[in-house]
């Protein structure tokens, strides 16, 4: 399989008033051509910073201490700003949580898309206008001819996100990075936007990085999943590996902590005690140890490496060490997974 993007041992800190915030602490992952990789984790775990590093839009107080980012064989971090601009504009499309911040409030929608085409694709104006209208139709804006001449505030949240997607598509990207694109939207609008992204991906064979904290959205979108915690990837696998055979205690808690439509009323939810660590003082050992029911002595001293579970599945937990005591996932999570598999089987006939 062709790797379109590869990130290796990325370390990033921020110079902040209170000291150095160690936001990314050794992140490695790759993206295959045409697949969707979901990055899932709680807020503050480093999802956005990781993608900002890939697109080189980190704020000024960020420092990349170490790491390699390779895009189609090119070393992105070694490029000059000018060389990189070419890639960012033509090959990578970005969609953020808040569509308003990506749009110019005082410019008509049609013009915003047209300008992007003129600037990035060097299209003549007439052609750009026609293409902009086509893009608006492609992302499902009704009455596109009329809405071409309207301003962002005249669009609902869902329609604005469609416009942002249209602008991202204007440069014919091969890589689409979506950072919580539906978090601010209602579920029925979210489901329409997810369908749209999937449709576009299929049509254009895009490679997608999809960031979210919603496991339902991950299940819907992802081929593979990276689970992030406190600036590290703690588990990686196919979507089936992660949902049906999770190995890391943090993934266990994520999967078991939210009620789903099958959770019986009043059942105690599995909770992760405490709060995520303060990244000014990342703990020694495994950052998850203080919140982990299964933590062993070693966890407070030494960070676990990535252990291989299968060719597609890796997890950073000492529990996978050959000498570790055998610890199974919690019984009620196991039960939940069995039920889910049964239900999926029933549904798929």
């Amino acid at each position: 399989m062709e790797r379109i993007l590869e990130v290796k041992d990325l370390h990033i800190h921020f110079n902040a008033f209170a000291g150095a915030v160690k936001a990314i602490r050794g992140v490695s992952f790759h993206l295959n051509k045409g697949e969707t990789l979901a990055i899932v984790g709680e807020s503050g775990s480093g999802k956005s910073v990781t993608t900002k590093a890939v697109t080189r839009i980190l704020p000024d107080n960020a420092v990349i201490d170490n790491g390699e980012i390779t895009y189609k064989g090119m070393d992105l971090l070694a490029m000059t700003e000018k060389e990189f601009n070419n890639i960012r504009g033509n090959e990578i499309g970005l969609i953020f949580q808040d569509p308003l911040s990506a749009l110019d409030p005082v410019m008509k929608i049609g013009k915003q898309i047209t300008e992007t085409l003129i600037l990035k694709q060097k299209m003549p104006k007439k052609e750009a206008e026609a293409r902009a209208l086509e893009l608006m139709k492609a992302v499902g804006i009704p009455n596109a001819e009329q809405r071409f001449h309207e301003y962002p505030f005249q669009f609902s949240g869902g329609m604005r996100q469609r416009i942002v997607i249209a602008i991202a598509l204007a440069s014919n990207p091969q890589l689409l990075i979506c950072d919580e694109p539906t978090t601010a939207l209602d579920v029925t609008i979210q489901s329409q936007i997810l369908e749209l992204i999937k449709k576009i991906q299929k049509e254009r064979n895009l490679s997608v990085i999809f960031i979210t904290h919603d496991l339902g959205v991950v299940a819907n979108m992802a081929d593979r999943v990276d689970v992030m915690y406190a600036g590290k990837i703690v588990e990686e696998g196919t979507v089936e590996d992660i949902f049906y055979d999770p190995k890391h205690p943090y993934t266990w808690s994520l999967l078991a902590s939210m009620p789903n439509l099958d959770t019986k009323g009043g059942d105690e939810l599995m909770v992760i005690p405490g709060t995520p660590p303060n990244m000014l003082y990342p703990p020694k050992g495994d950052a998850f140890a203080p919140r982990n029911h299964y933590a062993m002595k070693i966890d407070f001293d030494r960070e676990p490496p990535m252990f291989k579970v299968s060719d597609t599945h890796y997890a950073a937990t000492w529990l996978l060490h050959p000498d570790a005591p055998k610890v199974e996932m919690p019984a009620h999570l196991k039960h939940r997974i069995e039920l889910q598999l049964k239900e999926a089987e029933k549904y798929n006939g």
């Binding site: 029925t188 979210q190 489901s191 919603d214 339902g216 299940a219 789903n260 798929n348």
Partner: peptide
């Protein structure tokens, strides 16, 4: 509304 809620069960959800 019910059909729009994503369910964290990939083989079903997809």
């Amino acid at each position: 509304l019910l059909s729009a809620i994503p369910i964290p069960n990939p083989l079903l959800e997809k």
